[in-house]
C-alpha cells in the first residue's frame, strides 16, 4: 500500500535538533525550547520504560481523561473513529486489557516475556504554550522476547500532549508500525 503520509509543517519555529547527550540530569536553560524538548523526551522515555517494566497502571495514568491510544489499521487513516484499527482504546478499554493480562487465568501470559523499547528522533511538531499542548513525533524500535522467540516492531509515535498540574498527559497517541501491515505471527497482547 502506498504511503501517503503528509508531513505536517512545523507551525512555529522548529526546535533545534539536539544530539542526545548524556546530560539528562542537568538540563540547561537555553531559552529556545530545548527545555520543553528535554522534558517531553523524558516523558516519552518514561512511557516506554513503564511498558518494558509492565507497569500497566502507571502507563494508563499517562493518558488524560478521554485520552486514546490508537494504532491504525493502515497508514492512510487520519482518525480512529469509525475505521478498522489494531488498537483504538480509551482508558476504560485499556483497563480491560490491563486486567486481562494480569488475570491469573490469562493463559497466553503464562510464558515469561519481555520487551525493550528504544525511543528516538523526538521532534516537537507544534506547540501551543498558552493552551499547554504539544504534538510530538518520535520513532521507536521494540524488541519482544516470548517463549524462545524474538519479534521486532518499529515505527513512529505521534503524541498529542496536554500539560496538566501533574505534568504532561496524553490526549492521543498514534502508533504506526512499518511492519504493522504484514501478517502477524501470533498477536500483540499489549500496547507497543
Amino acid at each position: 500500500m502506498a504511503r501517503a503520509k503528509k508531513k505536517k509543517a512545523a507551525k512555529k519555529k522548529a526546535p533545534p535538533v539536539r544530539r542526545k547527550a548524556a546530560r539528562v540530569a542537568t538540563p540547561r536553560k537555553s531559552g529556545n525550547g530545548a527545555d520543553a524538548l528535554r522534558e517531553i523526551e523524558q516523558f516519552l522515555y518514561r512511557q516506554a520504560e513503564l511498558l518494558d517494566r509492565q507497569r500497566w497502571d502507571d502507563f494508563i495514568e499517562l493518558f488524560a481523561p478521554g485520552g486514546v491510544y490508537w494504532m491504525p489499521a493502515s497508514p492512510e487513516q487520519t482518525a480512529g473513529e469509525g475505521v478498522p484499527s489494531i488498537f483504538y482504546e480509551d482508558r476504560d478499554l485499556m483497563r480491560v486489557r490491563m486486567k486481562r493480562v494480569t488475570h491469573p487465568h490469562a493463559w497466553s501470559q503464562a510464558p515469561d516475556w519481555g520487551t525493550n523499547h528504544i525511543v528516538s528522533n523526538v521532534m516537537i511538531e507544534s506547540e501551543d504554550k498558552r493552551a499547554g499542548t504539544a504534538v510530538v513525533r518520535s520513532r521507536f524500535h521494540m524488541m519482544e522476547f516470548r517463549r524462545d522467540e524474538t519479534r521486532h516492531f518499529a515505527g513512529s509515535y505521534v503524541h498529542h500532549l496536554k500539560k496538566t498540574r501533574a505534568g504532561w498527559r496524553i490526549a492521543r497517541q498514534r502508533v504506526d508500525m512499518v511492519n504493522g501491515q504484514g501478517a502477524y505471527d501470533y498477536v500483540l497482547q499489549i500496547w507497543v
Binding site: M71, A73, P84, S85, I86, F87, Y88, L93, V96, R97, R100, A106, W107, S108, Y184, Y186, V187, L188, Q189
Partner: peptide, 18 residues
C-alpha cells in the same frame, strides 16, 4: 472487529496459545 478480530485481539490471543 477491533477487539476480537484485530492483531491486538483480547480474545484470540488465548485461542492461539491453545
Amino acid at each position: 472487529y477491533n477487539l476480537v478480530n484485530s492483531p491486538a485481539t483480547m480474545v484470540n490471543a488465548d485461542d492461539l496459545e491453545n
